[in-house]
Design a protein around this nucleic acid. Structure first.
Lengths: 300, 300
DNA sequence: TATATTTGTATTGCAATACAATACTTAGTA
DNA sequence: TACTAAGTATTGTATTGCAATACAAATATA
């Protein structure tokens, strides 16, 4: 209900005032994301320029519905998940099935994401050199530590993981690539935050939902800022069980050629085999060295 | 030019005959992809049901443009790559930038795919258990072989790789996940083909572009079919330098609970350290065992 | 087995949206 | 400074996407 676009009353007049529009009062092109009204309520709704193609957004919003509930969804479930009407849901599901991004089980009539979505991630990975550049150093870090190593980039108030090397003795592959986690409570996020100006940090924290995820999640702003400052002092920061109980992580920031923060490397271990002290003793040098090497490699 | 939708003459009449349409002569629902007219010429154009939302397709076609040329693209390049007009390209680029799937470099004004695309792959991986189920066996295979292990699923006339474990001593991470390769000239593809009926195999080969990729690519249908048959006899098949010069691969099929082929596992090594004989001697048992274990795990 | 209810599918008129055309602006070159 | 090419903004038009709705199929209930 209460679709984010405010499409509540069907047939609302909305007298066709599209042509005419407000005549670009500023001198900054429409392209710039000059919307400070971020994240209204749900996922949908972004821009309202006359250039914006709403159907594209709706298509992605159907796909996004599957990242919340990870089960196959029926048409009506998709309609209610996305806040679209049944007709619209029907249209977009039909389209996405035709395009191959959703698969339909003919007996249950439920849809689920198809492997074709991986093609899109491949498009990103193949056209963006960062993960290839970082790869050798990440592999080295995994070899030196024996533990899981991740590469993360900032995305709004979150970090998004773009590469993962699982620990040498792991027997599962955590599908973390493409996953997001809040900056404020991850070592990756705090490492990245340390590359930002105090104003930007404030802005990101303001926009963050500081609800604790585990009972160890640090939500006190002063304490978060202190941990971010730690990076400037020591070169790394840790987060212990703040996202996942039993998980300890340590991260260091990656800098780009332009002197701006790019993302971060983190190493990820579990209790009780590891303690925070041991993480700092053994992994801090590795994670710092790795981040440093990647930063250098990015500048060449 | 000659956009696949036949949108050649601007302002062509196309007298508004949309409502009315042909009244579903068959009894098979519109959802079923009953179009045999596959892959006309370029990438665009699929269905023409009144349910189909063309803008969604166009959005994806813009993203797809980046998988051909892996560099950042300007607006006009995107327009010509996709066959859309400049206006349409503008709209879809604007939309995709707003949604965060494309990033704009303000100085060069070029766009490139953003890491947010990885979220979509995560949606797939998280809602589809196959890669998690297969993971322990793939890890085991990598441990036993020390070499790169891949998991592939069929997609039209190609296979798409949905998981990759790089070889123990590799210092690069080949971004192969989400990548596609033709079935006819890959060991993975042939292993999958062996699970299909002769008619389906013929159909897939008919639809395939049998142009050789390297000078070792086998394009003779009888020879391809023989290699596919090998799987039935021996449980595995090989492909040597047919896609990448210097690369030898061996694959075995994965079967689902319903007795239908699901995909395949392959192990991937390089010359001159390896020869086809050594691959068969040392890796065939591993790849067969792995595929068998995954098939069993999928049935439980 | 019949009836009710829910879910999926198909159709249609309406109007809002996406488009081509085009004018305008900026950047890059001569 | 003019010239050219590329990017950006605007607008009328009609195509497209939508809600509403009718129809069908499946599932639940009696």
């Amino acid at each position: 209900m209460t679709n984010a676009s405010g499409r509540l009353t069907p047939l609302k007049p909305k007298t066709g005032t599209r042509p005419g529009k407000k005549i670009n009062e500023t001198d900054v092109p429409n392209y710039i994301n000059n919307s400070e009204d971020k994240s209204e309520n749900s996922s949908i709704s972004k821009a309202d320029s006359s250039l914006f193609v709403g159907s594209v957004e709706k298509g992605f919003s159907v796909l996004h519905a599957f990242s919340r509930s990870r089960k196959p969804l029926s048409l009506t479930e998709i309609a209610s998940e996305t806040g679209m009407g049944k007709s619209a849901a029907q249209r977009f599901c039909y389209t996405l099935v035709q395009l191959g991004f959703l698969e339909r089980d003919e007996s249950s009539r439920r849809m689920r994401p198809s492997a074709k979505l991986l093609e899109l991630s491949h498009t990103y990975l193949a056209s963006n050199p960062i993960s290839s550049i970082a790869a050798p150093y990440l592999l080295q870090a995994r070899e030196n530590s024996g533990e899981a190593v991740n590469l993360a980039l900032p995305m709004e108030q979150d970090v998004i993981y773009i590469a993962r090397l699982s620990s040498s003795n792991s027997h599962i592959l955590h599908p973390i690539v493409g996953g997001r986690a809040p900056m404020f409570c991850t070592s990756s996020g705090r490492a990245y935050l340390s590359t930002q100006t105090p104003e930007d940090i404030e802005r990101i924290l303001d926009a963050s939902d500081l609800t604790p995820i585990t009972r160890h999640t640090i939500t006190d702003r002063a304490e978060i800022l202190k941990r971010v400052d730690d990076v400037t002092i020591n070169g790394y920061t840790t987060a212990c069980q703040e996202c996942i109980v039993g998980e300890l992580t340590i991260a260091a920031p990656i800098w780009g050629a332009d002197g701006l923060g790019v993302g971060s490397v983190n190493i990820c271990v579990t209790r009780p085999a590891w303690t925070e002290e041991r993480v700092i003793d053994e992994l801090a040098p590795i994670v710092c060295q790795t981040a440093h090497n990647i930063s250098l490699a990015l500048s060449n």
